[in-house]
């Protein structure tokens, strides 16, 4: 924006006449970098950082994924031949990778709707209540600010074979316990992540709810609409942009999953039932020394997330786009 306006003013000055043009020449030369060229210097460390530590690796990841790449000692020059889509073929035909994508699918199907539903419900309730509001807000937000590693300890304790959850369930406790059961491992991880992240999404919804005018609710209650009618017809459409954001963020966080299944289920879980794609990247890339395959998996994963995000935006965002 500023770029256009700073270079645009001399251009719009041109048609006025030759004298104006001549007057502009010294200003133009001085203002080539704008009135405060020092801004470039102030921005430089950040720009260099972003280019070197974030933008360059992004391109490097794609480069690695198309070459026969392996770890070497520092400053050793080796040949890294171009191999086309070989690494991608290796990735897509790997049963462990396929399993990890299935796992993440299970995770997202449970985690995303639960996150959207529960955070909207709790934010809506929080918006109505006056007593203890700060306390409630705090309590929802505490899991979000706490290290996953710390809270995982308690969840392991709660969900172990003879843990408190199974004690309370009594005869209803699942056969192999939650985290060692190949059917329940991923759903339990999904439940954990929902619980851990919910506070953040509640805050997003709380902010969005402030934009819905009270008059809408008042006129609805005058017309005799009960609270569910109000919720579905006023609240849900009113926070639709926030719902799109929450869905996308929950999906992106889910695709990045590593710490939670790694610690809760001891790596990949029973029969790889809770191995996440990032865990497979770690395994193939760093433990087995195939960074090229791992990089290809990363690219596939990101493309997959982008596709899912586009579909979600269509579904949740409605026809307004």
């Amino acid at each position: 924006m500023s770029l256009r306006s700073s270079s645009g003013s001399p251009v719009t000055g041109k048609p006025v006449g030759g004298t104006a043009d001549q007057r502009l020449v010294p200003r133009k030369r001085k203002g080539f970098l704008g009135p405060q060229p020092l801004g470039l210097l102030f921005s430089a460390p950040y720009v260099i950082y972003v280019l070197a530590v974030l933008a360059f690796p992004l391109g490097y990841a794609v480069y690695i994924s198309f070459h026969d790449f392996f770890f070497t000692a520092p400053r050793v020059k080796v040949d890294r031949p171009f191999v086309g889509f070989d690494n991608y073929i290796t990735v897509l035909s790997d049963p462990a990778v396929q399993r990890s994508f299935l796992n993440i699918g299970v995770f997202l199907i449970i985690n995303v709707p639960l996150t959207v539903g529960l955070s909207l419900l709790l934010a809506n309730a929080l918006n109505r209540v006056t007593r203890l509001k700060t306390f409630f807000r705090l309590s929802y937000y505490v899991p979000y600010v706490t290290a996953s590693v710390a809270v995982v300890g308690v969840w392991l304790f709660l969900f172990q074979q003879n843990g408190l959850v199974n004690t309370l369930l009594g005869p209803l406790a699942p056969g192999p316990s939650w985290l060692v059961n190949s059917w329940l491992a991923m759903p339990t991880v999904a439940l954990y992540v929902t619980w851990k992240q919910l506070g953040f999404f509640i805050l997003l919804y709380l902010a969005a709810l402030q934009n819905i005018p009270d008059e809408l609710y008042e006129s609805a209650s005058v017309d005799g609409g009960n609270k569910w009618v109000q919720f579905w017809n006023i609240t849900v459409p009113g926070v639709r942009p926030a719902s799109v954001l929450v869905t996308l963020l929950a999906t992106i966080t889910g695709a990045n999953l590593f710490t939670e299944p790694y610690l809760l289920t001891g790596g990949g879980g029973p029969d790889g039932a809770s191995a996440s794609p990032v865990f497979i990247m770690y395994q193939r890339g760093l433990l087995q020394g195939n960074p090229d395959v791992a990089a290809a998996l990363g690219v596939v994963l990101v493309i997959g997330v982008l596709l899912i995000a586009l579909i979600q935006k269509r579904l949740v965002g409605g026809k307004e786009d």
Binding site: S2, P35, G39, A61
Partner: peptide, 24 residues
């Protein structure tokens, strides 16, 4: 501050927040 390239830096700051860490 007004300087040439400010829009580019601003856009960069927004885009960077969308880079998925697993790719890096």
């Amino acid at each position: 501050m007004q300087f040439r390239g400010r829009g580019v830096v601003f856009g960069m700051m927004l885009l960077v927040q969308m880079i998925p860490f697993q790719l890096l």
